[in-house]
C-alpha cells in the first residue's frame, strides 16, 4: 500500500481543521483538555462524544448508500432500540440480555427494510420511509408514551461511562468503524457492495448474491442504529421515544455525503463518513460554545455546509488544478475517488 502522502490530505480533514480553528477563535478555551475522575474532559472530547451517535449511524448508512440505497428509518430504529433497552432494564433483566434484545430489535428492523428493498423491489427511500414513520410509533407503544427512566449503572455506562479515560461512546465508535472498515476492505465485501451500487443487474449476472448482500447492508444499518439508540438512551438515562434520533437520519446522510461517498452508489469510505459526522458535530459544539443567539444556529450550520460541499465539488478541484500548476497530476476530482483506489490496493 504505497500511496503518496498527498492522497491522505483530503478536503474533509481541511474542513474539520478549519472549523476547529474557527471554534478556537470564537472560544479560546476550545482545545483545553483536563483529566478528572479518570476521564478526559474538554470541548474536543465533547465533539467526539456527541458526534458518536451520528457517526455510528453514518457507518451503517455508508454501506447502504454504497449500494445506491438510502435508509431513512435509522432515527426511528434508535428510538425502538432505546425503548426496548429502557423498558427491559426497568423490568430487571440482566444487562447482557437487555443489550442483546435492543441490538436484536435493530437487526429485525434492518431485516425488514432489506427485505422490502431486495425481495419486493421497493425504492429504498419509500421502503425505509415506512419504518421511519411507523418505527417511532412502535417505540412510543413500547414506552407507552412516557419517558422511561432507569438507574442501572451498567446501561448508563454505555452512554456516560469511560474506558481508558475516554467516554464509552467514543470507544464504541472507533471500534465499530475499525471493524466495519476491516470487514469491507480486507475482504471482497466492499467491492461487492460497490458493484451492486454501480449496477445491480450486472452484478447479479456476474454471480453476486445481490439480494442477500442488500438485505445484509440494511440489517447492518439497523444494527448500527440500535447501538446509537442504546448510547442515546444511556446518555440521558431514559428512553424518550418522541425525540431520540429525531432528524438524525438526515445528519447521518449528510455525514456520509460530506465524507465523499456518492449518493449514486459505487464508492464509499467508512472512515471519511465518521470524519463527516465529526465535522457536523464540531459545528454544533462550536455554535454552543460561541454564544451566538439560537436563532442563528441553523443559518450558521447551513452556510458552513454549503462552503464545505463547494470546496469538495469537482468544480473546485478543477479550479485548484489551474491555480496550482506545479502539480503534475490533476487532483482527485472528488474526494471519494481515493477509496476506490484503496480497494484496488488491497486486492493486489
Amino acid at each position: 500500500m504505497s500511496r503518496p502522502l498527498r492522497s491522505f490530505i483530503k478536503p474533509q480533514f481541511i474542513a474539520l481543521a478549519l472549523i476547529l480553528l474557527l471554534n478556537w477563535i470564537l472560544f479560546p478555551g476550545f482545545f483545553n483538555l483536563f483529566f478528572r475522575d479518570g476521564r478526559l474532559y474538554g470541548s474536543l472530547i465533547d465533539v467526539l462524544n456527541r458526534g458518536a451517535p451520528v457517526a455510528i449511524l453514518a457507518i451503517g448508512m455508508t454501506a447502504v448508500i454504497a449500494t445506491r440505497g438510502i435508509d431513512l428509518s435509522v432515527g426511528a430504529v434508535m428510538a425502538i432500540a432505546g425503548a426496548v433497552a429502557a423498558t427491559m432494564v426497568g423490568d430487571g433483566h440482566p444487562l447482557f440480555l437487555v443489550i442483546m434484545a435492543a441490538l436484536a430489535a435493530g437487526l429485525v428492523c434492518g431485516l425488514w427494510n432489506g427485505s422490502l428493498v431486495a425481495l419486493l423491489g421497493l425504492q429504498p427511500i419509500i421502503a425505509t420511509l415506512i419504518l421511519m414513520v411507523a418505527g417511532r410509533g412502535i417505540a412510543q407503544t413500547i414506552t407507552e408514551g412516557f419517558i422511561v427512566t432507569f438507574n442501572d449503572p451498567g446501561l448508563i455506562f454505555m452512554g456516560s461511562g469511560s474506558i481508558l479515560g475516554l467516554p464509552t461512546p467514543i470507544i464504541i465508535m472507533v471500534t465499530l468503524a475499525a471493524l466495519a472498515t476491516a470487514a469491507f476492505r480486507l475482504t471482497a465485501l466492499g467491492l461487492f457492495v460497490e458493484a451492486i451500487g454501480v449496477n445491480r443487474s450486472a452484478s447479479t449476472y456476474a454471480g453476486l448474491r445481490s439480494r442477500a448482500l442488500l438485505i445484509g447492508v440494511y440489517t447492518f444499518a439497523g444494527f448500527c442504529a440500535a447501538i446509537s439508540g442504546i448510547i442515546a438512551a444511556a446518555d440521558i438515562r431514559g428512553a424518550d421515544a418522541n425525540n431520540v434520533g429525531l432528524w438524525l437520519e438526515l445528519d447521518a446522510i449528510l455525514a456520509v455525503v460530506i465524507g465523499g461517498t456518492s449518493l449514486m452508489g459505487g464508492r464509499f469510505s467508512i472512515p471519511m463518513s465518521v470524519v463527516g459526522a465529526l465535522i457536523i458535530q464540531a459545528m454544533n459544539t462550536g455554535i454552543l460554545v460561541s454564544g451566538f443567539p439560537p436563532e442563528f444556529n441553523l443559518l450558521v450550520k447551513a452556510a458552513l455546509i454549503i462552503v464545505i460541499l463547494v470546496v469538495q465539488s469537482p468544480l473546485a478541484g478543477r479550479i485548484w488544478y489551474f491555480i496550482a500548476p506545479s502539480r503534475k497530476r490533476p487532483p482527485p476530482s472528488s474526494p471519494a475517488e481515493t477509496p476506490a483506489t484503496s480497494t484496488e490496493g488491497t486486492l493486489k
Binding site: 465533547d46 440521558i236 425525540n243 454544533n284 454552543l288 460554545v289 443567539p293
Partner: peptide, 24 residues
C-alpha cells in the same frame, strides 16, 4: 442562552457547552 428544543438530550448537550464555555 441557547435552545435545547425542549428535550432531555439537547438540554444535556447544550448544558455541556455552557459548562465548557463558562470556566467549567
Amino acid at each position: 442562552s441557547q435552545t435545547g428544543d425542549f428535550t432531555r438530550a439537547q438540554g444535556k448537550q447544550v448544558m455541556e457547552g455552557f459548562l465548557r464555555a463558562e470556566n467549567g
